[in-house]
Structures are given as structure tokens and as C-alpha cells.
């Protein structure tokens, strides 16, 4: 497994009040994304454990775009990756921030 860590400054704070959210599963070509409100509001921490080695530059591009485009400030995001494609990663990250924004029931 390869581990990657990113500490990024986030222009927009994550919405909603939920403390955590989880989306996806760890399977071939899939990943799980755990989002926790555990970072300063203007930053986003992303820790990745991935089965696919040597894709650091792609992860870097995906998470930077994500933090620039989606409200991710204040989140600590932990990813277990089963070798998902970048488009799937981007989709799960977007699903994750939408889920943590959902009103609590």
C-alpha cells in the first residue's frame, strides 16, 4: 500500500453541521472516503492509503481541484483506495461533501 498526505488551504468552508460522513466502499476500482470536521475552517487535510502505486501526481491534481472547486474547508478526509480511477475519486469526494452538508435527521 502507498500512503499520501495533503494539507491544503481551502477557500470555502464545508457546509452543514454533521460531524462526519462516509461514502463508497473499498473494492477493486472503488474507494471509501471518510470526512470528519476536524481541521481548521480554512484548510483541508487529506490522507490516502492506496493499492495503486505511483499515482502521486494524479492524486495531487485531483485533490487540489477538489479543494478549489468544492466546499472542503474544515475537513479531515481519509481515503482507503482499492485502485479507483481519478474520475471515481473526484465523484466520491464530491458525494462526500454533499453528504456532510445534508441536514441531520
Amino acid at each position: 500500500m502507498e500512503t499520501l498526505s495533503f494539507r491544503l488551504s481551502a477557500p470555502t468552508r464545508a457546509g452543514g453541521t454533521r460531524m462526519q460522513a462516509i461514502v463508497g466502499v473499498v473494492a477493486s476500482g472503488n474507494l471509501e472516503v471518510l470526512l470528519e470536521r476536524a481541521a481548521p475552517a480554512d484548510s483541508c487535510m487529506i490522507d490516502i492509503t492506496t493499492a495503486a502505486h505511483g499515482f502521486g501526481a494524479v492524486w495531487d491534481a485531483v485533490v487540489r481541484d477538489f479543494v478549489a472547486r468544492r466546499p472542503a474547508g474544515g475537513l479531515r478526509i481519509s481515503i482507503n483506495d482499492g485502485g479507483a480511477r481519478p474520475d471515481t475519486v473526484a465523484l466520491r469526494l464530491a458525494q462526500g461533501v454533499r453528504k456532510i452538508e445534508e441536514p441531520e435527521r
Partner: peptide, 28 residues
């Protein structure tokens, strides 16, 4: 709706102690 409360949720990261030995991905 809304009634479920999880025990030992993913945030506790209570994962398999064995899978990493095989270099396999874990799930929270």
C-alpha cells in the same frame, strides 16, 4: 428514518490487524 445509531463507527478506525500483512486495502 433517522433512527440508526452506529456502534464502533468508521471514525474509530477499528480495522483488521491482518490485511496490512498481505498489503491489502483495509476498510474503516
Amino acid at each position: 428514518p433517522g433512527s440508526f445509531a452506529e456502534f464502533i463507527g468508521p471514525e474509530q478506525r477499528e480495522m483488521s490487524p491482518h490485511l496490512s500483512i498481505f498489503d491489502l486495502p483495509e476498510q474503516f
